[in-house]
Design a protein around this nucleic acid. Structure first.
Length: 638
RNA sequence: GCCAACAUAGCUCAGCUGGUAGAGCAACGCUUUCGUAAAGCGUGGGUCGUCGGUUCAAAUCCGACUGUUGGCUCCA
């Protein structure tokens, strides 16, 4: 595949970086150095721990190499010659493996610039002097071949552009992006905190953030009522047995909080001289055993769920729920269903807990406890398509209302080579077809990605990028033919015979935490009035109108608006500045003139000074803006 | 979990090679009563993330731990 000119430029930078590396650290063992979406990197195995000072040195050396104006020369060789070259330059540690990756029918080429020669398919710019605008950015650890069992190499990240202006522009953009990072804004606008003593990845929603979340929940609840969902509530824990049946316990044990054991069960285990270590070892064996049982099943629709043999019951206990499905399934299963009842749609803002690796935690976007705007639909096979479309429509309504249009849609299919999936192939095919067909109705491009399915079924995900380009899965819709089997769910059909329902799991926001994090960045903290923690701030010009201002505050609050009054003795400019920094959508300036006429001078965060209007007229206008969940109308560019 | 960097007042940060802490903003008080992004003066506020070590002496050097950040791995 040919590289774009920009990729060519960046990839050439990788080679120049490698050239500089070997000049400064001759014993460096090189792995690979490809271009990326935003720049390039090179992975290197080096005993010396690279520092930021080294980056500066390397960058200076790269500039020298660019100035030396070395030509990039391509050389095609046989496999034996390639091996010889790699040995000659002393880079056999990784390069021989990379050479072995090249299929037998493909040409093997090296690129040489100056003294440096590298196994490489290309392509490159013609001379190093073409590299005019590059910068080394950071050093990171990266496993060889992306496998955590392999040695961790040092990865040097950099970026490059055709011109210095473009590079400077990109670096400025990075700086700008940091200003709308949800972690910074979350602190500035007092939306949420994470406390060390409460625990990593556990979000404490402070009053301002709670308002945003509550408004989002209200919004989605309204939409759910329109679509015929029933609201349920379920507890935060469930017995281990429940998750053994669902398959979550054996499959995701390592990413769950440890079980909460019953006191009696623990006491019994202790009485049997079972140490904690042994108990956990037995639990470990149990989950491994469960996995094997499931994997060796032939995939027939057995109607009966997997059961744990009684002698496997070593310790009874509960699990903090890692997902809501089993609880909702039990609600469905609690009474018989006729085909006339279907679809049954059960919704809950359900809080779940997952043991994410410490290094993966990130602000609100990757946490250990989060609340899904979850729902499970139980329907007939014939209803799947329509229900899927309904779920996707809901996601679209939400994204449209919030003005989020920059996302991609991913259809996650099973990886035919992996064993992590449960259920029979025929059902998987049906489910995957249903997903594909539903995705087509979206009217936006989507990609099909094998290996992205959940263990119980394929899914459609909405993926959005954060300010620094990281992708986050938000809304998700998943078809599931498996859990209904595992829990032996049924409904009575028109033929008076029991039938197996199909489940759809869906969460339009994904999780309230992640969604709010992304939303903060999407709006850069400038929430539309309906979401803004503080919708209106009254700014009296002097104490002389304080009584009038207080009366207005009372009135705004009585009208259900989230309003505050700035009673500081600052000058107007300072109060305006404070309101702007707090990103309040509307500031009402009240002086003698306004007080006498019962007017307000409106300053909009989005549009600036909007002039004087009667206070009742303002209230009516704002209430409409809030009720319709309008996005702030920006001032037209002059 | 792994690699690396970082952790000083509510916030943003200063504190060079060791001699027990400073600024701006915020808060509070007083003065000012002001027309669309910062009025003036004053006051309070920190066992320098935690624990341990080196030293006559540690915010500063070393170690462990906790947390954060950037990556890697993972993400039902």
């Amino acid at each position: 595949m040919a590289m774009t000119p920009l990729e060519e430029l960046r990839h050439s930078c990788s080679h120049v970086l490698a050239t500089a590396l070997l000049r400064i650290f001759p014993d460096a063992k090189l792995d690979i150095g490809p271009p990326t979406d935003t720049g390039f990197y090179y992975d290197v195995d080096l005993d010396h721990k690279l520092t930021t000072e080294d980056l500066a040195k390397l960058e200076a050396e790269m500039k020298k190499i660019a100035d030396e104006n070395q030509p990039f020369l391509r050389k095609e060789v046989s496999r034996d010659e390639a091996t010889e070259i790699i040995k000659r330059i002393g880079q056999e540690r990784y390069k021989l493996g990379r050479l072995a990756d090249i299929p037998a029918d493909e040409k093997i080429s090296f690129y040489q610039n100056g003294e440096f020669i590298d196994l490489c398919a290309g392509t490159h710019v013609r001379y190093t002097s073409k590299l005019k605008a590059f910068k080394l950015l950071s050093i990171a650890g990266a496993y060889h071949r992306g496998d955590e069992h392999n040695k961790q190499l040092q990865r040097i990240y950099g970026t490059a552009f055709p011109t210095k202006d473009e590079l400077a522009n990109y670096l400025t953009q990075l700086e700008q992006a940091k200003l709308r990072d949800h972690r910074k804004l979350g602190k500035d606008l007092k939306l949420f905190i994470v406390d060390e003593d409460v625990g990593q990845g556990l979000i404490l929603w402070t009053p301002n953030g709670a308002i945003v979340r509550q408004e989002l929940q209200t919004f989605i609840s309204e939409e759910l009522r329109k679509q015929g969902y029933a609201q349920v509530f379920t507890p935060h824990i469930g017995k281990l047995e429940l998750y053994k049946t669902s398959g979550h316990f054996p499959y995701y044990k390592e990413s769950q909080f440890s079980p909460i054991f019953e006191n009696e069960s623990l006491a019994k285990a202790l009485a049997e001289n079972c140490s904690c270590g042994e108990a956990f070892a037995r639990l470990e064996a149990l989950s491994a055993n469960m996995r094997d049982q499931i994997n060796t099943r032939t995939g027939k629709d057995t109607i009966t769920a997997d059961r744990v043999r009684p002698d496997d019951q070593l310790l009874d206990g509960f699990l903090l729920k890692p997902m809501n499905c089993p609880h909702h399934i039990k609600i469905y299963a609690s009474q018989p269903h006729s085909y006339r009842d279907l679809p049954v749609r059960l919704a809950e803002f359900g809080t779940v807990y997952r043991w994410e690796q410490s290094g993966e935690l990130n602000g609100m976007t990757r946490v250990r406890g989060f609340t899904q705007d979850d729902a499970h639909l139980f329907c007939t096979e014939e209803q799947v398509a329509a229900e899927m479309i309904g779920c996707l429509a809901l996601v679209k309504v939400i994204l449209t209302t919030l003005g989020m249009s920059d996302y991609r849609v991913r259809v996650g299919l099973r990886d035919p080579d992996s064993k992590k999936y449960t259920g029979d192939a025929a059902n998987w095919d049906k489910a995957e077809t249903a997903c594909r067909e539903a995705a087509k109705t979206l009217g936006v491009p989507f990609t099909e990605e094998p290996g992205e399915a959940a263990f119980y079924g394929p899914k459609i995900d909405f993926v959005i990028k954060d300010v620094i380009g990281r992708e986050w899965q938000l809304g998700t819709v998943q078809v599931d033919y498996n859990l209904p089997v595992r829990f032996d769910l049924s409904y009575i059909g028109a033929d008076n015979q029991p039938h197996r329902p199909v489940m759809i799991h869906r969460a339009p926001f994904g999780s309230m935490e992640r969604f709010c994090g992304v939303l903060i960045e999407h709006f850069a903290g400038d929430f539309p009035a309906w979401l803004a923690p503080e919708q209106v701030r009254i700014v009296p010009i002097s104490d002389k109108v304080a009584d009038h201002a207080r009366a207005l505050l009372t009135k705004l609050k009585a009208e259900g608006l989230r309003a505050t009054l700035d009673e500081h003795s600052d000058k107007l400019g300072a109060k305006i500045r404070r309101a702007e920094l707090d990103k309040v959508p509307y500031t009402l300036v009240i002086g003698q003139k306004e007080a006498e006429a019962n007017n307000v001078s409106v300053r909009s965060r989005a549009r600036g000074d909007e002039g004087v209007i009667g206070s009742d007229a303002f209230i009516a206008k704002l209430k409409t803006e809030v009720a319709t969940r309008a996005l702030p109308a920006r001032k037209a560019a002059a």
